[in-house]
Design a binder for these strands. Structure first.
Lengths: 192, 192
DNA sequence: ACCTGAACACCGTTCAAGT
DNA sequence: ACCTGAACACCGTTCAAGT
């Protein structure tokens, strides 16, 4: 029965942000759901920015840990690419939610600085991993080419998640991934 | 000196939404900027949803008109593809703003139904045009393949705009477009 | 036809006060 | 250490009232 109030707040807040965005996050509703008073939320997170930053930090850390576990060797490359996109797909399958940081990128100008910093870190983590992945596959490719490709892939996957969520249809996400694979935007992709 | 108050409201609101999103649009601030009282805005647009829907409707109509003017013949295809992506690029160059409907897609679940309908229409208009464009280029391609590709291209372009805006760097958008062209996600792309 | 002030129920935030 | 009620300045919306 020793529920951690702070963690309960974060768990609930994460769901709300993934479904409706940072701006839709309300301390008052959060308090109601968790079962405390509005002012009490501020004891754990002084401002909404502190809560948002804590969410994004935890999310980025988890992403980093997830990516660190993915193999970069040639033989598993196609499966690794699929595992990467499946992480974004999973959010859609869970009640049509978005990547926590993906949805906050859209709200970037509205975010307190501390939140923005963490959201940017998520983007950076993804781009860096994609660069490592691409480099492992094509060691002789130019740095600039690798960079363009990494940014393009990340943008395309985030965009697909955004549009698929708009249609409330995971199949749209799958269509995009297949098209990205078929047209070689993705360096590798599992053949059927 | 016959300024149209209704149009002034829409002009200002459009800028705010493109820069900060629908949720950041405030009737009170809008009123201040336009030079009328908060309650007066409601005379022209009964609810915030009416204003948002009017903005999205006008935007979708303009997009439709713009796309109708683009040639679909083979010879100008590469230039047409660039003209299409340049429309999205232009928003970024104008104070790092987003496509009006692109940013609202991210807020989709928060939008009043009437706004959501217009935003969806913008997506539909783009997908339809891309399908026509792809069909004109590859008349023998399958309908399902064309559809996947159209959705994938739209998602990739919107995603690139989102990420580039996050970086506040148009060059990121250009990098993505070049990568999309080089990897043949785009059916055609101007060679340098 | 167009605008307004006042009121309503919301919001994040602060703070002094409780246990 | 953790929570609370009350107040503050915000928000969209409504409405009766003004011209």
């Amino acid at each position: 029965m020793t529920v951690d109030t702070r963690q309960s707040i974060m768990d609930e807040a994460k769901l709300v942000v993934q479904a409706h965005g940072y701006s839709a996050l309300s301390f008052r509703e959060l308090a109601k759901t968790v079962g405390i008073k509005n002012a009490s939320v501020h004891y754990h997170f002084p401002t909404k920015g502190d809560l948002g930053a804590a969410l994004a930090r935890q999310y980025s850390d988890e992403a980093q840990a997830f990516l660190n576990c993915l193999p970069l060797d040639r033989d598993s490359a196609a499966q690794t690419m699929k595992t990467y996109t499946d992480a974004f797909r999973a959010a859609l399958e869970r009640d049509n939610r978005m990547c926590l940081c993906g949805i906050m990128i859209a709200e970037r100008d509205e975010l307190p600085e501390m939140v923005r910093g963490e959201v940017d870190r998520f983007t950076e983590i993804n781009i860096q991993w994609l660069k490592s992945f691409l480099e492992a596959l094509a060691p002789k490719a130019g740095a600039s080419e690798i960079m363009d490709r990494a940014v393009a892939i990340f943008s395309a996957v985030e965009g697909a998640q955004l549009i698929a969520r708009g249609c409330a249809d995971v199949a749209v996400f799958d269509r995009c991934m297949n098209a990205y694979g078929a047209t070689a935007l993705f360096p590798v992709w599992p053949s059927k």
